[in-house]
Amino acid sequence: MVGRSPVAAPAAAPPALRARLTGRVLTPVTVTLAVVTVGCALVLVSGGQVPMVLQLVPFAVSVLVFGLPHGALDHLVPARLRSGTGVARSVTVVVVLYLVVGAATALLWTVSPLAGFAVFVGITWFHWGQGDLFVDRLLGDGADRPRGACLTVAVRGALPMVLPFVAQPGAATAVVSGTIASIAGGGGGGAGPVGVPVPVRIVAGVVVLALVVLHLVAVRRGGGPVRRQASEDLVLVAFFVLVPPVLAVGLYFTLWHAVRHILRLELTDPDAAAELERGRLLAPFLRFARQAWPITAIAVAMLVALAVLVRHADLGVYLALIAALTTPHTVVVTWMDRVQRTWRPAADAAISPTTRDETRRP
């Protein structure tokens, strides 16, 4: 049972909790992505296409479920992870962070949507990779040393951010050009695909596959099991190669990244963490949802306001909003990584829900 007082934590979650999270959350998501991959492969073989309206469903769902809400508790994170930080101070610091960094991101998109999108891809690459690194620490496996941690972040961020441009460049670049046109005020409907030179695609593909191999070697050398890492890498490679980019990124964002981060947030709440250790998944999530809905509602209002400002609502508008929220959110998560020592070797990590930063200081 997780205690309610700040005490030193083990390097990873207790074995029973690790087994529950793996068997009831992580593996089902991986299997879901594998099933979608097979389905899309069959559609491709038959000469068909996945309708765009169907591809957009995960993004539509993510507005209220998992996706947009997964960062809605950022304002409580400092109070939960650092002793002596009151809720008022925690909220104030994070709100200022969001106003300053989010506004700077929005300004960049206004001045140069292309530059804004490029920065968005780079930040998302890092942020989605660091999310998977935390799961490695939570489960007590993965690459053990700092170099291995860098490989984890590089690989797991590259799969969703690079492979679509390698395998399906027309569809992937159409999202970029459509988003730029949308923010420029013309809507995204008239934007057509832009080709990616074949040599660039080949080099990028080889680099990503080499990173996957190096990552698995690092896991193996660290003494960790490679079964989960290898199976997830295999599914993700096939997923982002065969599934249309809009559907692939939408599903990954909603089911893979957001769900994993919500688990991380639940583990910072002693009550929710205790429920998880009892094998209960619904109660902690409902608790998270109750806490997250006010900020989620504000984010939805911002989405509506942005759509009114540019006089249309489409995927590009939603991506621009996510970009403005992702930058400060990544700052918060990076601070969480520092406090929880996510980048340290697994034996030095401190990821328990009740761990405070000062309890683990050398």
Rank of each mutant, 00 (worst) to 15 (best):
V226Q: 11
R227V: 15
R227D: 09
A230G: 08
S231D: 00
D233R: 03
D233W: 01
V235N: 03
V235H: 02
L236S: 03
F239G: 02
F239V: 01
F240K: 03
F240G: 04
F240T: 11
V241D: 02
V241P: 05
L242M: 05
L242V: 00
V243A: 12
P244K: 15
P245S: 04
P245N: 05
P245A: 02
P245K: 06
V246S: 07
V246T: 11
V246N: 07
V249Y: 10
V249N: 04
G250S: 09
L251W: 00
L251H: 13
L251T: 02
L251Q: 10
Y252N: 11
F253N: 07
T254I: 00
L255K: 15
L255S: 04
W256D: 03
W256I: 02
H257Q: 14
A258K: 04
A258P: 00
V259H: 06
V259R: 09
V259M: 13
R260V: 04
R260N: 14
H261F: 05
I262P: 02
L263T: 09
R264D: 14
E266T: 01
E266S: 08
T268E: 13
P270T: 11
P270K: 13
D271P: 07
D271N: 15
A272K: 01
A272G: 03
A274E: 15
E275T: 03
E275D: 05
E275Y: 10
R278N: 08
R278L: 12
G279Q: 09
R280Q: 14
L281P: 01
L281C: 06
P284Q: 12
F285D: 01
F285P: 06
L286Y: 00
W293C: 11
W293R: 08
W293K: 13
P294N: 06
I295K: 14
I295P: 12
T296Q: 12
A297C: 11
A297D: 15
A297Y: 09
A299Y: 03
V300F: 15
V300Y: 12
A301S: 15
A301R: 13
M302A: 15
L303N: 05
A305Q: 06
L306C: 12
